[in-house]
Amino acid sequence: MNALKLAGKVQRIIDRHIRKKGYEVEVILETPKEGMINRPKFSLEDDGTDDDGNPIQMHQASIKVVITGHKIDEDATPIGDNPVKLLDFIVIDDTELPQASQVEEGRFLVYNGERYNIILVSPASLAGILIIKECQARSVK
């Protein structure tokens, strides 16, 4: 069996065992406007405005993800205060979505009424076909 056929079989298995059984949940993906993605978002100087003093506008899109884990990092800072919630999730093949609706590092996810900054996106592909993206996000206040 060649890799292309195997990729097709893996996609069908994911469709049958994850999508059709309802494991995906709907979340909101927030994408900052162009040019703000790699800005240092959590510095003391960041007041939520762009360089002109206008509030940063976010593009919001509803996407489906599969939540795979929740963690709390109790010692998030050297002095041990301010625990941080970590959210692990996967996204199943989002290449057909518009660029602003694709999961990438530096974007925000709203899940269960909480905002998370996406800090890790690790795509898994087979024969050049994207199968899933394994992701991790960190809570923001």
Rank of each mutant, 00 (worst) to 15 (best):
I63T: 00
V110K: 11
S101N: 08
Q102N: 05
I18H: 00
V140W: 05
P123K: 11
N54C: 06
E30W: 08
I13F: 02
S122V: 07
D93R: 12
K85F: 02
H17Y: 10
V10Q: 07
T68P: 02
I28T: 15
F89R: 07
K9N: 07
P98T: 12
L29S: 00
L97E: 10
A3W: 09
D47R: 14
K64Q: 10
G22M: 04
A76N: 15
Q60E: 15
N112E: 15
I72G: 00
A137P: 07
D47K: 15
Q136V: 12
K85N: 06
G48P: 04
I118S: 02
E74G: 05
D75K: 14
V110Y: 02
I13H: 05
I18S: 03
Q99L: 12
P78D: 04
R115I: 07
D75C: 08
E45T: 10
K71I: 03
R16D: 09
L97R: 13
G80P: 04
V65C: 00
I118N: 02
M36R: 08
G8M: 09
D52C: 05
S122E: 12
G35S: 05
P40A: 12
M36A: 03
P78H: 05
E26C: 00
R107H: 07
E105Q: 14
I14W: 03
D75I: 12
Y111K: 07
K141Y: 06
A137I: 11
I131D: 03
K141L: 09
D88G: 05
D51S: 13
A100L: 09
I132Y: 05
K71W: 04
G53D: 07
D46P: 00
L130Y: 03
D50N: 15
A76L: 01
D46S: 10
I18R: 02
D73K: 11
Q11W: 01
I129G: 00
E34F: 11
I129P: 02
H17D: 08
G80S: 07
I131E: 01
G106P: 03
R115N: 09
I79S: 13
I131Q: 09
I72Y: 00
E45P: 00
D94A: 08
I67T: 06
I63N: 01
G128D: 03
V10R: 08
Y116C: 06
I72F: 05
Q102D: 02
M58I: 03
P98G: 08
D81Q: 09
K133A: 01
D46E: 15
I13S: 07
T49N: 06
D94S: 07
N2S: 13
E30S: 14
Y23F: 15
I118F: 06
E26A: 10
K5E: 13
N54E: 14
D47N: 14
D73A: 05
E24K: 09
H59N: 12
D52K: 14
T31M: 06
D88A: 13
Y116M: 06
A124N: 11
T77G: 00
V25C: 04
F89S: 03
P55V: 14
S125M: 11
G22N: 04
V91R: 11
N82C: 05
G113V: 11
D75S: 11
D52F: 13
K21T: 15
A7L: 04
L6K: 12
S139P: 00
I56Y: 01
D75P: 02
N2K: 11
G80D: 06
A124C: 05
L4Y: 11
D51L: 12
K33R: 12
